[in-house]
């Protein structure tokens, strides 16, 4: 399973590249940051960025044929107005609906090299755990495409990566608008729940065996931002198998379950031992749209909002 140590370094590099990118991103076109070089002309190219695994990638001009290897990245590209340049996506992509028309060139494990080659692409964006520096270099060579790796691990980093993607594809201004909107929205949610007591929350990823979302998962971060406390915060893994006994003992105020596993509130309420849960007794079991919270794209704040509304119903009346 995924261990923290394996992404700490890339994560730091990623954050560093972002902070550097932001520093060169002032409205007056101030001096470029440590990792962003080249003249600050209107087009923004040539452009050099450092990606999540510490690779420096330089673009001489605006990418015209883009492959997105993560639904979150695809959503971002559509949100910043680069939809007509997206030529390849993964089998899991389903949002926005217009993405149906785009060719599928791989799945969450990675792209099909031949398909990518046939599309004559100039930018591939990867965003999954297995995308290491070596993998990215290899893929860049095989597909003769510039490869950029993103791997945000928090909601905040996800919002920042929206700005980074926008910048990559030459839609800096639109990206800034989207990023600002997301931060505003997140701030409003934060304000609404700020004065409220923090309820405890259990999030079910899968029912049998019982799996939850621990530290290092977006869900864990989203619960925190939504003004809740994740009862599984002391597990050592992003998606661990969880003890039912401990769940019953900790008796969370709210029980959330991702809808993609197909569970219903009735099924959850009828499980052995569950009738003793306060959340079951008082009708505080909610099925949430997990696509929103597991995809670090422009809808992630909607996911935070969905959780916040479920666990702070009064604040959102």
């Amino acid at each position: 399973m995924h261990k923290k140590a394996s992404w700490t370094l890339p994560m730091l590099l990623f954050l560093f590249s972002l902070s550097a990118a932001c520093s060169g991103d002032g409205p007056a076109g101030g001096p470029s940051g440590a990792n962003t070089s080249g003249p600050e002309e209107a087009s923004g190219y040539p452009l050099t960025i450092t990606d999540a695994v510490g690779r420096e990638v330089t673009f001489d001009s605006r990418p015209k044929r883009i492959v997105s290897m993560a639904p979150s990245v695809t959503e971002t590209l559509f949100a910043v107005g680069a939809a007509n340049r997206v030529v390849g996506v993964t089998t899991a992509d389903d949002y926005p609906p217009e993405v149906e028309a785009v060719e599928r060139v791989g799945d969450y494990r990675g792209p099909n090299v031949e398909k990518v080659l046939s599309l004559n692409t100039d930018l591939m964006i990867l965003s999954f755990d297995g995308a290491t520096e070596g993998y990215a270099e290899d893929m860049a060579e095989k597909t003769r495409t510039k490869v950029v790796v993103l791997n945000p691990k928090t909601v905040d980093a996800a919002i920042s990566s929206v700005g980074l993607v926008a910048k990559l594809v030459g839609e800096r201004e639109k990206g800034r608008v989207v990023e600002e909107r997301l931060r505003d929205e997140l701030g409003r949610i934060g304000e609404k729940v700020a004065g409220e007591p923090k309820p405890t929350v259990f999030y079910e990823v899968w029912g049998d065996p019982l799996q939850t979302a621990g530290p290092g998962s977006f869900i864990d971060d989203a619960i925190r931002l939504a003004g809740g406390t994740n009862v599984a915060a002391d597990t050592g893994d992003a998606y661990p198998e969880y003890s039912k006994e401990t769940l019953l003992q900790r008796d969370p105020d709210y029980y959330l379950a991702g809808r993609s596993s197909g569970v219903t509130v009735e099924e959850i309420s009828g499980r052995p031992g569950y009738p003793a849960l306060g959340a079951v007794k008082d009708g505080r079991v909610t099925i949430v749209n997990d696509d929103l919270v597991v995809r670090p794209g422009p809808r992630i704040v909607e996911g935070v909002r969905e959780i916040a509304e479920a666990i702070h119903p009064k604040a959102f009346d």
Binding site: E245, L248, D251, G273, Y274, A276
Partner: peptide, 12 residues
Amino acid sequence: SAAEGQIVWQIR
């Protein structure tokens, strides 16, 4: 407690 009862009889 109800939780203890459930843990012992419905889970364990």
